[in-house]
Design a binder for these strands. Structure first.
Lengths: 268, 268
DNA sequence: CGCCTAATTGAACCCGGTCAACCTTAGTGG
DNA sequence: CCACTAAGGTTGACCGGGTTCAATTAGGCG
């Protein structure tokens, strides 16, 4: 059982990772924990984190796709999120005594694994890192919230559209798109498991989107032919994927606060 | 426009909050930011945070129920989560330039509002607080993930069951249950908006659960008559609601790590 | 070339939505 | 004390989007 090859460590990170691909949180993490990050490679369709186990690492994903999922008692699989190139994963797992979800590779992946204790102690010393982790967790929750709305309120047509738009924006900000096209190494079954649809219906929905000239498919290549229309029909607003930062003004004079969010307040 | 009454502040927190009700994160927050926390009261059905606005406060909810929701373009409302007595809210809102969701009171509420800048600077000084915030964010995401599975994979019957079990556990840990009973100040329409069901079907489902002697309803009072059966049929595992803490062992000797989560790793 | 996986398409079924009507309860004001 | 009202709960009938089952085609890889 190997967990990467230390001899390959020097240079591994910069060689394997497409320039500009790693998201800010990953960069911060790697620069703070440089010595402790262990490079690894996984073939496709391997579990990196197994639900129920005690997780030990926070991971930076350099170049592959992974899914966070859970197997239900009826045998169904729900994918709660995807980990795209440049993103980190494993933080939620480390917050629970045993991991709630499994994380498996979809494609082959180069990862950097940082022991969670290293992350914890680094975060205690470095405010920037701990705030970045917090923002990452909140950002993940925002994506989950939007997917919840997907499955709860949108038709299959809107769901698939919204999903493709989200992937596009997330890939674009790591410069992994080409115009309005990107590579999506997902089977229709995997898409269905993420969106709560049967693979058959994913197929029909993609066909409908193609027939309506909203998207084009060529193998694993997706092209958004009418970005605006897709946004409109799926209620897509990309703000939930936005880069967030902590606002750090001078503390406001709260006695003069004029914020509509308080409009309903009565005297205490 | 009032944002609470400072004169009422001394003693307010301890008087209004049922003993033992406030969750650890809220306690930590209030003790770290004691002077800055402003007490407020809201009547029921008032927006505390409005989607699209720039939020300024993190809130501790002392004694009421609130919902985080979003209005879709088609007019539908999706409730992504509830804020129960003792829980905090407003953290995700503060991470984005404008709040993604609205938060509205369901019942009358006593809140403590802490300016986000105070929280930020306190978190920078105090590792315990910043870690607690991170855990709270991860815990919220876990709840969202479970609700995603609800709407994506479970039948209405399982969904409602799972929802009631989650409420029960969340209320129980703040000692707001009585045996297997608790008060749920939600209309069937609100439940539907949370679970992605029509109010009509929520009604039918509750009736079915009653007929099957799994629950009992008396006004706003819910009693879980067969906890085990409810867990079984809805795939409920309460670990996702668990109290989580950071494991802080000595860094492991990674060359000897024997973790199943690495079983798929190949040499780097 | 043959195998296996994934994509595709058709047909029948069913869960949950929608519409509509009626009932129950709590709150209000005379 | 009671009549009126409004909001929420309850139930029935019908409809449709999505599932399921099943069969066929296309594609990738040894």
């Amino acid at each position: 059982m190997f967990i990467g090859n230390d001899a390959a460590a020097p240079g591994f990170l910069t060689v394997a990772a497409p320039a500009g691909c790693i998201r800010p949180i990953g960069k911060t993490l790697l620069s703070e924990c440089r010595g402790a990050a262990k490079p690894m490679r996984f073939r496709k369709c391997r579990d990196v984190i197994v639900a129920g186990n005690t997780p030990q690492f926070l991971y930076v994903n350099h170049d592959g796709w992974l899914s966070r999922y859970k197997i239900l008692h009826n045998g169904g699989r729900q994918i709660v999120n995807f980990v795209l190139p440049g993103e980190i994963f494993g933080l939620p797992a480390c917050a629970f005594p045993s991991s709630l979800y499994s994380v498996a590779t979809i494609t082959a992946c180069s990862l950097s694994a940082v022991p969670i204790e290293i992350v914890t102690s680094a975060a205690e010393r470095n405010t920037e890192l701990s705030m970045a982790l917090l923002l990452a967790a909140i950002g993940d929750a925002a994506i989950l919230g939007e997917r919840l709305i997907d499955t709860a309120r949108r038709s299959a047509y809107g769901r698939v559209s919204h999903f493709l738009l989200e992937l596009f924006i997330r890939l674009e900000r790591s410069r992994q798109t080409d115009g309005l096209s990107f590579d999506m190494p997902l089977t229709q079954e995997v898409i269905g498991d993420a969106l709560g649809l049967s693979p058959v219906h994913v197929n029909r929905t993609l066909r409908a989107l193609r027939d309506d000239k909203l998207i084009a498919l060529d193998g694993k290549r997706v092209t958004l032919r009418d970005f605006e229309a897709l946004c409109r029909l799926s209620d897509f607003e990309q703000s939930y994927l936005g880069e967030s930062t902590w606002r750090r003004r001078e503390p406001v004079n709260t006695s003069l606060v004029n914020d509509a969010s308080l409009a309903g307040a009565t005297t205490g």
